[in-house]
């Protein structure tokens, strides 16, 4: 009886599915976005290797400079505290000086809103008071907070790098980019509201590196990977230790397993 009911239920499900499977499908409209969209190419970062890759401190500092001098005009970095900049090689005094350049909203003794100088314990603040102000200043597009951008897009740092160098002056003939938007083959909809932010020699690197667009894009992408995953090096270091420990432990466990079972295996073959 159970089997008959089951067979009946099964037959109904199968019929419903097969009926759906034989329905004609809508003709596929050629999707121009799919045609022109390009996945980010690997840019070759010092931290690419998932086990031993490390950040390049000098690169992170250059990337920070690009962020500060270019991107911070539109993008916030709200999840990053100034104090953590010591991790990328700035001294405590330098961090203090960097923090001081930011005005942080606060209240004065009378309870009136005012601003004070930033402290190392503060997070990055600005450039806009809120999302509405950000949209108003950017053609109604919201420049996302960049703290987690290295992990919130497929491709991570490679994506950020590719996006920044992916602008094309003239879109293909069959593609229209409305005014106020820019054609970029790496952006999911191909039309991005961010104007090409980088121009050659836009920043002057203190370490003398030549500031090509590609170089700046790579540096800021590396920096934004660090802001997204500040514990990356600590994680990999811990991981190497943990895995080596576990391999040794597993080896010992195997030896004791083989030893314990020796007698059983031997008896089996004797009988």
């Amino acid at each position: 009886m159970v089997k008959l009911i089951a067979a009946a239920i099964g037959a109904i499900f199968c019929a419903a599915l097969l009926w759906g499977a034989v329905q004609p499908r809508d003709a596929v409209v050629p999707d121009l976005v799919k045609k022109y969209y390009q996945h980010a190419e690997p840019a070759g970062f010092s931290f690419d290797n998932p086990i031993v890759g490390k950040f390049d401190r000098a690169q992170l500092q250059r990337g920070f400079q690009v962020y500060k001098e270019v991107c911070s005009g539109c993008h916030s970095l709200n999840r990053v505290a100034f104090r953590t900049l010591t991790d990328i090689g700035f001294s405590a005094a330098e961090v203090k000086a960097i923090a001081k350049q930011y005005d942080i909203p606060s209240l004065d003794a009378a309870g009136e809103p005012t601003t004070r100088k930033g402290l190392p314990s503060d997070n990055f603040y600005g450039p806009y008071a809120n999302d509405d102000a950000a949209r108003a200043a950017n053609n109604n597009a919201l420049p996302p907070d960049l703290s987690l951008i290295g992990k919130s897009r497929e491709g991570g740092a490679n994506y950020v790098h590719a996006l920044l160098i992916g602008y094309k002056e003239t879109p293909p003939k069959d593609w229209t980019t409305p005014d106020g938007l820019y054609f970029n083959v790496h952006f999911h909809s191909l039309n991005i509201a961010m104007p090409p932010p980088l121009n050659p020699d836009q920043v002057t690197y203190v370490d003398g590196t030549k500031a090509t667009v590609d170089q700046m894009a790579k540096d800021v992408a590396a920096f934004l990977m660090w802001t997204a995953e500040p514990k990356l090096e600590e994680r990999r270091r811990t991981g190497v230790g943990a895995v080596i420990f576990l391999i040794i432990l597993t080896g010992l466990a195997y030896l004791s397993y083989a030893r314990v079972w020796q007698s059983v295996k031997a008896k089996k073959t004797q009988v």
């Binding site: 998932p50 086990i51 994680r235 990999r236 811990t238 991981g239 190497v240 943990a242 895995v243 576990l246 391999i247 432990l249 597993t250 466990a253 195997y254 004791s256 397993y257 030893r259 314990v260 079972w261 059983v264």
Partner: peptide, 25 residues
């Protein structure tokens, strides 16, 4: 001790793979 030993070995293999994913991917 037979299956405790075998399970301990299996656990070692499992934790090694687990740790590799947690720390590297």
């Amino acid at each position: 001790p037979y299956y405790t030993a075998k399970d301990f070995f299996g656990l070692g293999v499992y934790l090694t793979i687990f740790a590799a994913v947690v720390f590297f991917w």
